[in-house]
């Protein structure tokens, strides 16, 4: 089983590499350098914070971009071009195939985040700021967050069209970061219905703020091991749940 999943994963990774998705990494580097060059002189005394904040934000944003661009079309494209039929006619289950696709995209994200993190560190070292171990926690949590978002886009892509899957994923990303605020806001509105609705959204949508430690890192705070563990368990648990639903959904699909 592992061999089949690995074959699909490596092939998906190869596809993203050959589709020149890594050009986005170059764009990331450019954003990083330009922003630090332009913004830093405007904020006297806060140059380090600006560079770190923009860098970590851009890292998540570019990761999200790749996830949505590649993930929303990943399964649909194979159905549309019918490349999936010869694969699923081999002794591989649909769940194995889908897991392979997910892992392949995850591998792409690992490679991208590794390169972007290295660029980020290089830019930091070029400024008066110093590199701290806390940045690694931020990179790591950004990756866990993107894994969860990848699982979501894989699920959406099995039930709907690529554009809608992309919109749904982006909506999930935004609401996921605002869910706690939404819950608090709902409680303040005074209407029990609105409060319950906000509560429902809070519990249904993954709380992506759990992976956002940018503020802490920018201000020099360390991220506790406990938080890292909790966030990892939460992220991977949610990812597994989404993949199980996606697998069940994909298993029911007619591949004409």
């Amino acid at each position: 089983m592992l061999r089949r999943i690995r074959a699909v994963a490596l092939n998906t990774y190869r596809e993203t590499v050959r589709d020149r998705i890594f050009y986005l990494v170059g764009l990331f580097g450019l954003v990083l350098v330009v922003s630090s060059a332009v913004l830093a002189p405007l904020s006297v005394g806060a140059q380090e914070k600006i560079v770190i904040d923009v860098g970590l934000g851009a890292l998540t944003l570019f990761g999200l971009l790749v996830t949505v661009l590649v993930g929303s079309n990943m399964v649909h494209k194979e159905q549309d071009k019918r490349t999936v039929t010869t694969i699923l006619a081999k002794p591989i289950s649909r769940r194995e195939y889908l897991l392979g696709k997910f892992l392949g995209l995850s591998l792409t994200l690992v490679a991208m985040l590794a390169v972007m993190s290295a660029l980020f560190v290089a830019v930091i070292l070029a400024t008066p700021a110093s590199f701290g171990i806390r940045y690694l926690a931020a990179f790591y949590l950004a990756y866990i967050e993107l894994l969860l978002v990848t699982a979501a886009v894989v699920l959406f892509s099995t039930v709907t069209s690529p554009p809608l899957a992309a919109v749904l994923t982006l909506t999930l990303f935004v609401i996921g970061h605002l869910s706690e605020s939404l819950r608090s806001f709902g409680a303040l509105l005074g209407s029990p219905l609105q409060a319950r609705l906000a509560e429902l959204v809070y519990y249904l949508v993954p709380n992506l703020e759990m992976f956002n430690v940018r503020g802490a890192v920018v201000h020099g705070d360390t991220v506790s091991g406990e938080h890292l563990l909790l966030a990892t368990a939460y992220g991977l648990g949610y990812t597994a749940l989404l993949l199980i639903v996606a697998g069940a959904q994909f298993s029911r699909k007619e591949l004409r």
Binding site: N11, R14, E15, K81, R82, T83, T85, T86, A89
Partner: peptide, 13 residues
Amino acid sequence: GYLPERPNFYEYL
């Protein structure tokens, strides 16, 4: 072994 009608494969390979 299966050959579909008008087979299509990964063009990048």
